[in-house]
Design a protein around this nucleic acid. Structure first.
Length: 800
RNA sequence: GGGCAAGUGGUGGAAUGGCAUACACGCAGGACUUAAAAUCCUGUGGCCGUAAGGCUGUGAGGGUUCGACUCCCUCCUUGCCCACCA
């Protein structure tokens, strides 16, 4: 009988569903294993990235199930977001209808891949039974002062007509549509992620099984830096300008200071002292009209604020004050001390505007003293202090601490740390998201929607014209409400939450997906959490993972969970490439998983995706590789018709070796070499023929990798239960012991001979054997042994 | 500019101090077939050699070691992340 993948796959998918093979047990004595993949946005079709991510996870889930774990392997949909709105505008449909249709299509495709999901726990973030709890969490955050509203300059995407979080601005453009991001002053809702910055940084050290680079990226994003805030006084005024520096050792070389164009000093009364005020204001206006990207252009423009001077507090020298847009208001204090001799940006600026330089660090490698006039670029390295008063001669790293302490004592500076992390802006001027549960009342101000009135449901039929801002603002029945406090007419908040809010806690919802008395059942979460293994794309290394960690810490503060970190192990799978490029619609190099399933079956696709590369590295798509995977399965299929009565000893040995290798490889997510070992096993079977026992072990080990295929073979072997319930084969170490071994004989590190000896031979016996080896004679004859190195049962190296 | 990965046959990759290139793709040859496909078997880094065999070989150069794809240093290249971050 031929391998009829189509029939087999449909048959087993049906049986799995009917027998509820993958439903997690509610009460169980087994150890728990929570395996989670990053849930998809329901675009309607799965792509190769999904196939890869979910196949990797599925092998792990099925393997744990076969090893006797109580496995939680859920799936859901990150269903809010802009594409649904765009589709609504384009196709004159409703976002909810469109989204649910997409979810249905997507589920069909996921089921076709044979993934072992517990569909009874499915969640969609766009259902009010889910987003009700978004609103609940938001109100809890409001109670605790973690959610707050403020007016600020925010990133604004003119194309999407919405605000963006800092994390969503990529190269000065919108992460979604790449439009240039503008700055706009708006009243918006924020979450105080900065309140958790220390814990977000410190707890990274708990994440021992996360990829190093994700830890590095998060650390980088949090951006903690140690430095000193230095107070420069104005000459004619006792106003101070604080500046922040990480290089306080260069303070004696500060020859001017620079303010960001948005600096508050320029809005204060001081401006009347500036003699060239028109020029200054001109510059400020120009700078404000620039986008972030334009401001990072290399030429350093700027203007001096004439008529005012500042005093360098360490030497009381008078320094000019400049305004330049290379200084950013968002970072530090919005003002810097400029040390052109030791900072390249300041150097370029000083050259451009003919400002003085002063060398205060002397590199030890240079014999003559550096001079300001000769510098071709700033010297940013280490060295000894010069021109630095009482600190002259000290190594600059040491001076850094000394100067900081000295300044603190004198009250002219303060040791401080600065962070790159900003609070998280969550307001979006969009329709298809969770309504922010707030009511604005003329009398009472900002009034939270009472808990018992949740959810604030999203009206289903908003007008989608694509023009004039959020459709939600146009739905009168939604906007106009009575104030919950005083009952007078009031307005609802019409902004919705950023969708990253939804995905920041879904892993907790899966623990008790239908729970109605809170976002999740504490007891269930206690049992299942934290997630044992999380799998997803590297593109979420910062945003999603940071937000999810932040939410977890917030839940801990609420007493709802008792752990600090939500994900024990993280695996970031590599991308799927075609011809060396990422598969994408715009490049037109998409391979549709559905067509592969049609022509070769899901099991072949799974084998290929697992075999072609280790999970973390990029995977180059190869049509011929698919053929190879298909050929392998057929090769296994044919074994069943030629089973022998009894296997000989050498094959038994191969079997035990294979079981050991495959087990270890699957545990360590090395599926490519696990499959290679199975292929070798199959090659050995073709050489000497297998009996039922040997073949059964092969079928079981293929279970997590090619599940439908293995089920069918398992059934042909006369088994009544699913292969998922089969006992994972054990290897007997006795079979792995070799009686005779081949040892490599090297002379001076080069292989000159091989000898077959009984295992465990001692050094003296080996020496005798080697001396009588004719193949070695030309290399060792007449030369005294300097060393005789033996790696037991493996290798001999003779040094002559 | 800073940080983190990675660099191995014609290709995807294996080996993490001990036989470099497992496994697969491709290619070549053979068997089966009237023939083709499928299948099965054999070979396959480079150079020299009829062969036995020798030399050489993991981005480049140096170091540690009896022994280095693997560890250390310098450099080059590619990818990713961050970035006028003070």
């Amino acid at each position: 009988m031929e391998y009829n993948f189509k029939e087999i796959e449909e048959k087993w998918q049906k049986i799995w569903q009917e027998k509820k093979i993958f439903t997690a047990e509610v009460k169980s004595d087994k150890p728990k294993y929570y395996l989670l993949e990053m849930f998809p946005y329901p675009s309607g079709k799965i792509h190769m990235g999904h196939v890869r991510n979910y196949t990797i996870a599925d092998v792990a889930a099925r393997y744990r199930l076969m090893r006797g774990f109580n496995v939680l392997h859920p799936m859901g949909f990150d269903a809010f977001g802009q594409p649904a709105e765009n589709a609504a505008i384009k196709n004159r449909t409703r976002p909810d209808i469109w989204t649910h249709k997409c979810i249905d299509w997507m589920k069909i495709e996921l089921k076709k891949m044979g993934f072992s999901y517990d569909w009874e726990r499915e969640v969609s973030t766009c259902d009010s039974s889910y987003y009700k709890w978004n609103q609940w969490i938001f109100l809890k955050m409001l109670e605790r002062g973690i959610a707050y509203k403020k007016a600020s300059n925010v990133n604004w995407c003119p194309v999407c007509e919405t605000t963006l979080a800092n994390e969503e601005v990529v190269d000065g453009g919108c992460w979604r549509c790449y439009a240039k991001v503008e700055q706009k002053e708006l009243e918006q809702w924020f979450l105080k992620t900065t309140e958790y910055k220390e814990r977000l940084l410190e707890d990274l050290s708990q994440l021992k099984e996360w990829p190093q680079r994700v830890i590095a990226m998060q650390t980088n994003w949090l951006g903690k830096s140690q430095g000193v805030e230095i107070y420069f006084k104005l000459k004619k005024d006792n106003k101070t300008i604080p500046v922040f520096t990480t290089r306080v050792d260069t303070i004696f070389g500060a020859t001017y200071i620079v303010l960001a164009p948005e600096h508050p000093l320029l809005k204060s009364n001081i401006k009347y002292q500036i003699s060239n005020i028109n020029e200054v204001f001109d510059y400020i206006e120009k700078a404000q009209n620039k986008t972030k990207l334009e401001r990072t252009e290399k030429d350093k423009t700027g203007v001096e604020a004439k008529g005012i001077k500042a005093i360098n507090p360490v030497n009381n020298e008078e320094v000019p004050i400049w305004i330049a847009d290379y200084v950013l208001m968002e970072y530090g204090t919005g003002a810097i001390m400029a040390v052109p001799a030791h900072d390249q940006r300041d150097f370029l600026f000083a050259k451009e505007h003919s400002l003085p330089m002063k060398v205060v660090i002397q590199p030890s490698a240079v014999s003559h003293q550096l001079s300001a006039n000769e510098l071709k670029e700033a010297y940013e390295g280490d060295g000894a202090q010069i021109n630095s008063g009482e600190f002259n001669g000290l190594p600059n790293q040491e001076a850094k601490t000394k100067i900081a302490e000295w300044m603190e004592k004198k009250g002219i500076g303060k040791i401080q740390e600065h962070w790159r992390l900003r609070d998280w802006l969550i307001s979006r001027q969009r329709y298809w998201g969770t309504p922010i549960p707030i009511i604005y009342c003329q009398k009472c101000g900002i009034v939270p929607v009472p808990f018992e009135n949740l959810p604030v449901e999203l009206p289903k039929d908003a007008p989608f014209t694509g023009e004039g801002g959020s459709p939600l603002g146009k739905v009168k029945e939604f906007v106009n409400v009575n104030c919950p406090k005083c009952n007078s007419p009031a307005r609802r908040e019409t902004d919705t939450m950023a969708t990253f809010f939804d995905s920041s806690w879904y892993f907790l919802r899966f623990c008790s997906a239908r729970f109605e008395n809170g976002p999740f059942d504490k007891e269930k979460a206690k049992y299942w959490m934290p997630v044992d293994q999380y799998i997803g794309g590297i593109e979420h290394a910062i945003l999603h993972l940071l937000y999810a960690r932040f939410f977890t810490k917030f839940f801990k503060d609420l007493g709802m969970v008792s752990f600090d970190e939500p994900f024990c192990r993280l695996l970031t799978q590599g991308m799927v490439l075609k011809d060396g490029e990422v598969m994408s619609k715009s490049r037109g190099n998409i391979v549709d998983p559905d067509s592969i399933i049609k022509n070769y079956g899901a099991d072949t696709l799974r084998v290929f995706v697992l075999f072609a590369a280790p999970p973390e590295t990029e995977l180059e798509w190869d049509d011929r590789g698919i053929e190879g995977a298909f050929r392998f399965l057929n090769r296994v299929w044919r074994i069943k018709d030629n089973l022998k009565e009894k296997t000989d000893g050498s094959l038994a040995k191969v079997m035990h070796k294979t079981v050991k290798k495959v087990t270890e490889d699957i545990e360590n997510f090395k599926f490519n070499t696990a499959i290679a070992a199975l292929m070798e096993f199959v090659n050995a079977i073709y050489q000497s023929g297998a009996d039922r026992e040997v073949f059964s072990s092969l079928v079981i080990m293929l279970g997590p990798i090619a599940p439908h295929f293995s089920e069918e073979l398992w059934e042909t072997l006369g088994n009544k239960e699913s292969v998922c319930k089969a006992r994972w084969p054990k290897y007997d170490p006795a079979f792995l012991i070799e009686e005779n071994v081949t040892m490599v004989v090297q002379v001076n590190g080069k292989i000159r001979s091989k000898i077959d000896v009984p295992a465990g031979r001692c050094e003296d016996r080996l020496k005798e054997i080697v001396l009588s080896d004719t193949a070695l004679k030309p290399w060792i004859q007449g030369k005294p042994f300097k060393k005789f190195i033996v790696v037991p049962d493996k290798l001999i190296n003779i040094v002559v």
